[in-house]
């Protein structure tokens, strides 16, 4: 593997909201073309991990390299798929409008949509099987179709890494199946996917598993790291004493 940089390399990442740390000293090396699942209980810092990598929340410490590049331009390699609840589904946009947004990162604020941009947009719409819905308002789609719109937008961004934040919240089992199949396909096309997820039953769809509970509990292939001990460390209350101690320290400082 010498010479080919990892898709994502995180070193000693610490993030806090207010004064309470949400993530402590997380280090991860994620090779490219992998499906990575991030699991952990509520408040474990799963979404925070994604957001900290993207620079959306300030880091206390830590280095992030994307394909060996730590410059601000490196974020363009990442497409972030928002949680369903973060989207205003009444916003006046059609499916095509949303997918076209993916080109903005390349075009900036001023450059026109060229023929090539149009082609890429139509291609992504077709690839996601939503070509015939392109002129519909996003509210008028099923949950699975709505996910596909945002995946199409990520494709149009031509990002090599996809961050998916709980894509299965509020979608039915059939949709979940089809998204999982889609992810396999995207991986085969050379994408690296990091998915925050609640459901532990679909782990065999992933190459790597990140178990998180404010710190990194385990990282590796699911069949190796998903065991009773790690599960207890992630979801059990062992760390609650650390949390309580931190809370006490924080209150003392006020």
């Amino acid at each position: 593997m010498e010479g080919t940089p990892n898709a994502l390399s995180i070193t000693n990442l610490t993030v806090s909201y207010g004064k309470v740390p949400v993530l402590r000293g997380v280090s991860l090396e994620i090779p490219s073309c992998q499906n990575v699942c991030i699991v952990g209980p509520n408040g474990a810092g799963k979404s925070t991990l994604l957001k900290a990598v993207l620079g959306l929340v300030p880091r206390d410490t830590g280095e992030v390299e994307i394909f060996g590049d730590s410059s601000p331009l490196a974020y363009r390699q990442i497409a972030y798929l928002p949680q369903r609840s973060q989207i205003d589904w009444d916003f006046p946009v059609t499916v095509r409008d949303v997918v076209r947004m993916g080109r903005y990162s390349r075009l900036g604020a001023f450059r026109w949509f060229g023929r090539e941009d149009r082609r890429v947009v139509e291609e992504a719409l077709e690839q996601m099987g939503i070509g015939d819905l392109a002129d519909r308002h996003i509210r008028l789609l099923s949950g699975g179709q709505q996910q596909r719109v945002f995946i199409a937008r990520a494709l149009v961004q031509e990002a090599r890494i996809l961050f998916m934040d709980e894509p299965f919240v509020g979608v039915d089992a059939t949709t979940q199946e089809s998204i999982l199949a889609l992810i396999q396909k995207l991986k085969a096309e050379g994408k690296t996917i990091l998915m925050v997820n609640h459901d532990l039953e679909i782990l065999d769809h992933f190459d790597l598993l990140v178990m998180l509970n404010k710190q990194l509990i385990a990282f590796g292939p699911p069949e190796e790291v998903y065991n009773e001990r790690n599960h207890r460390l992630t979801y059990g209350g062992l760390l609650s004493r650390v949390d309580r101690a931190e809370m006490e320290l924080w209150r003392a400082k006020r």
């Binding site: 331009l73 363009r76 990442i78 972030y80 973060q86 961004q157």
Partner: peptide
Amino acid sequence: SFDPIMATTVG
């Protein structure tokens, strides 16, 4: 207005 998180990620 639509997706501030994506807006941030594209700079």
